[in-house]
Simulated assay, not measured.
Amino acid sequence: MQLIIMRHGEAGWHSLDQERELTDVGRHGAAAVAAAIGKSSWRPDRIWCSPYTRARQTAAIVSEVLNCPVDEKPFITPDDDPGLCLDALLETDISRLMLVSHMPLVGSLSTLLVDGHRKGIPFMTAQAVVLDMPVVGPGCADLKEQFLP
């Protein structure tokens, strides 16, 4: 499985956390990263995104650039257990998948898959990493590339 994990673009602070919207900078950053992914060999077949507004907006931008369908998943919000996402990854038959979510989940999920622990690495807004996993599981992924806005 190839998995791209992306943090949503920059969002404003003028509303409740779940309703925060992307700023102009956030929209441009998401589009720039999507364009870079589109020029690479890491194009996803499907996107899973958090139901929070900023993640849905980021996923919509990426979807438009990459011509890729999006599914909202309730288990990839900021404070969700990365183990729930791991369980879903084990059950899916999608071989090239992208997740658009939030810190700290993107950091803890990435380190769980690469290093086998959940301490979490930092992600900038709109940053994406590509993980290659011959087998889905803790410590089974190799970090292949990263895309920055």
Rank of each mutant, 00 (worst) to 15 (best):
A128T: 07
C49P: 03
R56T: 00
K144T: 05
L143N: 14
A55P: 02
V106D: 04
T53G: 00
L16S: 15
H117T: 07
P78S: 01
I37R: 11
P122L: 07
G9M: 04
S108D: 06
S41I: 06
M124L: 10
V62K: 05
L22V: 04
H14M: 05
S50C: 11
G29V: 00
Q146T: 09
E64S: 09
S95W: 00
G107S: 09
D87H: 13
V114L: 00
G139W: 14
K73E: 15
M6A: 11
E21F: 08
A55K: 01
Q2W: 06
I37H: 12
T58C: 02
V62Y: 06
L143H: 15
L112G: 07
A34N: 04
V130A: 12
P104T: 05
G137H: 13
Q57K: 01
S40A: 04
V62H: 09
H102G: 06
V70W: 03
L16Q: 15
D81L: 11
S101C: 08
V100Q: 02
D24Q: 09
V129R: 08
D87R: 14
D87L: 11
C140T: 13
M6C: 09
G12A: 07
L112S: 08
E10H: 12
V70R: 01
A55G: 03
M103I: 09
C85P: 01
Q18V: 06
A36N: 12
H8G: 11
V62S: 05
P149A: 11
K119Q: 15
L84V: 03
A128N: 08
V70S: 00
V25R: 13
A34I: 03
Q127E: 15
R20Q: 14
E72L: 06
D17K: 04
M103L: 12
V129E: 05
E21M: 10
M98D: 08
G139K: 15
S41P: 02
A11D: 09
P69V: 02
L86V: 10
I5G: 04
D81F: 09
I76N: 11
T53D: 11
P44L: 02
C85W: 10
L113A: 08
R56E: 00
D81E: 08
V106K: 10
E72P: 09
D17I: 02
I4W: 05
P149M: 14
F75P: 03
P122M: 07
G120F: 04
E72I: 00
E19K: 13
S15P: 03
P82G: 11
P134A: 06
L143R: 14
L22D: 01
H117V: 05
L99Y: 06
T53R: 11
I121H: 01
A55H: 03
F123E: 09
G116T: 10
R27Y: 02
G38W: 06
C68F: 12
R56H: 01
S95Q: 14
